[in-house]
């Protein structure tokens, strides 16, 4: 059950990440082409720049959990790589616990800021889109990160082994 649910979640994350990367690149280039080929169109496409920056924020935060699961987050693991046994288990447990609490805390503040900007009515200058579309990436992303730390803590996933298993 859990595995199926995680598989679905992972697929959604992957499709969104890849889709956003492609969309950002294509959108930006369409903007360049339009500006050079049909300059009068440029103001009509000004929203692309703004949308790309929002998309970047979503890529960055949406991918936090997936990056953890794959052991891709930047870490100085020389010491951890050298020790074995219960000492390692304790340290990894501490890391996962701190990671879980930290991500939950940031996710909570992310919810607060999203609610605040939604209520304040702040919109983006060109798209006229509520700024919740920007800040919303923080609670979603850090919730996904918290989920991954929780899974690590529960022993359902082991990123420190995953990181070593992937060919460098």
């Amino acid at each position: 059950m859990l595995h199926v649910a995680l598989h679905i979640l992972r697929t959604i994350e992957r499709v969104l990440l890849a889709g956003l990367m492609l969309a950002m690149s294509l959108g930006y280039v369409i903007n360049v082409i339009a500006r050079n080929a049909v300059p009068v169109l440029a103001p009509r496409l000004a929203w692309i720049e703004e949308a790309t920056l929002i998309a970047l924020a979503w890529v960055v935060f949406l991918g936090l959990g997936l990056a953890l699961e794959r052991g891709r987050h930047i870490t100085m693991s020389a010491f951890l790589g050298r020790i074995r046994g219960p000492a390692k288990a304790w340290i990894v447990g501490a890391i996962n616990l701190v990671g879980l609490l930290f991500s939950l805390y940031i996710a909570k503040i992310g919810v607060d800021i999203s609610v605040f900007v939604y209520n304040s009515g702040q919109v983006s200058p060109t798209l006229n889109l509520s700024v919740i579309w920007l800040y919303g990436a923080i609670p979603v992303g850090f919730a996904l990160l918290a989920l991954r730390y929780a899974l690590e803590l529960a022993g359902c996933s082991r990123r420190f082994d995953a990181a070593r298993a992937t060919p460098a």
Binding site: R14, L17, A18, G19, L20, M21, L22, L56, V59, V60, F61, L62, G63, L64, L66, A67, R70, R72, H73, I74
Partner: peptide, 21 residues
């Protein structure tokens, strides 16, 4: 393959940008 590369680049972006954040 392009899809898989896009996803990989996204994850690379994530681990760099979260440190900028």
């Amino acid at each position: 393959q392009v899809f898989r590369i896009a996803e990989e680049s996204a994850v690379t972006t994530v681990i760099i940008f979260v440190l900028l954040a």
